[in-house]
Amino acid sequence: MSTKSKLVDNKGKDCETVWRKAFKTNAEWPDKEEFLDVIYWMRQAIGIILGLFWGLLPLKGFLGLLLFVVVNAAVIYFYVNNFQTIDEEEYGGMWEITKEGFMTSFAGFLVTWIIVFTGLHGSNNNSL
């Protein structure tokens, strides 16, 4: 096997282990970056899923934005403290974890929410 394909193979295996660890309670995270990456991608997924739901319902106005922030932060807080039981001080406090990937996730949420809302309810005259 060539070096390049070995590298790709290793990367694939690493990815698989991270996936498994992400869904396992109290997993060990010797590499902080790996855990923060899981939080980052989880946030992106939450953003898109919430955007999809808010658009389908449809949820409108400031309430939608506020609910996104609350649900997003609550899910991450629950995941870090209850599911993985991580010592947040190791990562510079809960605030650092809460900030991880928030803006990107917020932008992703807005895009999904706006597009689904436009597609389903855009032509209606809606009062917000």
């Binding site: 449809p58 949820l59 409108k60 106005g61 939608g64 706006i114 597009i115 309810h121």
Partner: peptide, 15 residues
């Protein structure tokens, strides 16, 4: 910008 000038491309679900 000039292609989409003056066109409403989406409806925002918030003010």
């Amino acid at each position: 910008n000039s292609i989409f000038d003056g066109r409403v491309v989406a409806k925002l679900p918030f003010y």
